[in-house]
Amino acid sequence: MGEFKMKDQIILGIETSCDETAVAVVKNGRDIIANVVASQIESHKRFGGVVPEIASRHHVEEITFVIEEALRQAGIEYSNIDAIAVTEGPGLVGALLIGVNAAKALSFAHNIPLIGVHHISGHIYANRLVTELKFPLIALVVSGGHTELVYMKEHASFEVIGETRDDAAGEAYDKVARTLSMPYPGGPHIDRLAHEGEPVIKLPRSWLEEGSYDFSFSGLKSAVINTLHNAEQRGEQINPADLAASFQESVIEVLVGKTLRAAREYDVKQVLLAGGVAANKGLRSALTDAFADIPAVELIIPPLYLCTDNAAMIAAVGSVLYEKGKRSDLALNANPGLEM
């Protein structure tokens, strides 16, 4: 038998679906060897939210800088790269287009395989940069645009068992924050404020029909606005910290409750937290408490820098898709409504 030499698998990841221009290099699907994120948040703050056209313009300004920095940090040559994984959707179409076209240009110039990746599968695979995944598992994905429960029976197999019927959890956070006159992005402000108050204000819990894993947050958001409005009309003062705490408690109770039930019903080995709202301290501690009683289920919560948008998570998915033989061609397009 001839000499067999193990070769490391190297994936370059590119992510531009919203307001972060991100490029990363991941080795063997697990080890981050470069992870560069250029955030535009300061530029969007003055508009009170991400402006798609501005985001697209910033991505063009940043893209080659960020790729160069990632390659420099990783200290690799193009010949070391097995594949380029890029977010093809969902997201802002104009923003996605920059990453997709830069990835295609690189793929063409150096004849490197190209793989289109679903952004949310990236958030889920951020967990694989923390620890090896064990199947079956349930992932709770909560971000500005998504609230989903995803069942995975094996690598790269994603079954959405529950999703939001109206607002995403992160959207509800931002809207409630705006109602309380807090600056964009509102999520972290509500989270912080909630810890200063008590959940003494009665707000609804949206469990939806029996057995459903779907979510709905627009009713809760309206209840918060009505509570403020009614108090104003009666000339009463509402403590914003108490309102934030009550709102946060309602959101978290439903998120954690449904995740727990799914974990039991699907008899999973792991529960993963994913998406930008995973940075929420209230959610982290509630999940940790809930699963403390179920030692058979391993709860994984990625560090903050892997919860927000980054390209290491895209490369991590790219790694398993590459092994499974998935390839995209140079006609790869941005797909803002891409299904999982």
Binding site: S56, V60, I63, L97, I98, A102, L106, F108, A109
Partner: peptide, 19 residues
């Protein structure tokens, strides 16, 4: 077209930089 121009410019600058 903003989007159109960006597609060409992104491809052009990525190709020029990487080559």
């Amino acid at each position: 077209s903003y989007t159109g121009v960006r597609i060409g410019v992104t491809i052009a600058k990525t190709l020029a930089w990487t080559l």
